[in-house]
């Protein structure tokens, strides 16, 4: 473990806590893409199957359990508890365009041709694009509650922190994970537009609004 990865994981943890807090306090999931959240459940479940047969560390174990359970809990909040505040008519991104290509990519690029390793690859590819329905929704409505933008910023910062982590590991441990690195760079790049508006508007105290 190095500081970059620790900051990344903490940022990921924070993003989920911010999202749950937003939904609980405003009693609404307005502005949150259900499709993106459902994709995250898919990502975590397909990636963390190794919980059942590979022990890494206590930290690793609890984080995996947390990510699976919190993402399922968010789906529950959106589909059951605060269902009336979820508006599917603006959540229109076609996720089959993400799932299909990610499945094909996972069949081509993986470290071992076994069910769990191909699912791991799939989860890595899917995670890199899972935010697209959310960003698409933001683009469509042109605005977002400030707390939602903090959620997105923390989520974007998470994979961004992983990039220096990979560089550091390359130098100190001679470890390179090309699948994770390529997808991680793509994932971070998808946030650049958002980060620009976040830094120039939200952090200056203005509302998140996209130019018409």
């Amino acid at each position: 473990m190095n500081l970059f990865r620790l900051f990344g994981d903490m940022s990921h943890l924070a993003s989920i806590l911010i999202l749950v807090h937003k939904i609980q306090t405003t009693r609404s999931c307005r502005g949150i893409s259900f499709k993106t959240q459902a994709l995250y459940v898919t990502v975590f479940v397909s990636r963390y199957l190794d919980l059942f047969y590979d022990w890494v560390s206590l930290y690793n174990f609890f984080m995996k359990v947390f990510f699976i359970s919190s993402s399922c809990y968010i789906l529950y909040l959106m589909k059951m508890k605060f269902r009336p505040t979820n508006d599917p008519s603006i959540d229109t991104f076609r996720i089959e365009y993400l799932l299909g290509p990610c499945a094909i990519l996972a069949l081509i690029f993986h470290y071992k041709f076994t069910v769990t390793e191909v699912l791991w690859s799939f989860s890595i590819f899917l995670e890199s694009v899972a935010i697209l329905p959310q960003l698409f929704m933001l683009q469509r409505t042109g605005e977002a509650e400030t707390i939602t933008t903090h959620y997105l910023a923390a989520l974007g910062a998470y994979r961004a922190f992983y990039i220096p982590n990979w560089i550091y590991r390359y130098w100190t441990e001679d470890i390179v994970d090309p699948i994770a690195v390529t997808s991680g760079i793509v994932q971070t790049a998808l946030y650049l537009d958002f980060f620009y508006v976040y830094f120039t508007k939200v952090l200056q105290g203005q509302k998140f609004e996209l130019p018409a």
């Binding site: 890494v56 690793n60 071992k112 791991w120 982590n165 994770a180």
Partner: peptide
Amino acid sequence: QETNRAKDEL
């Protein structure tokens, strides 16, 4: 080296 996947990463 069997696999270069970093198993300790989340």
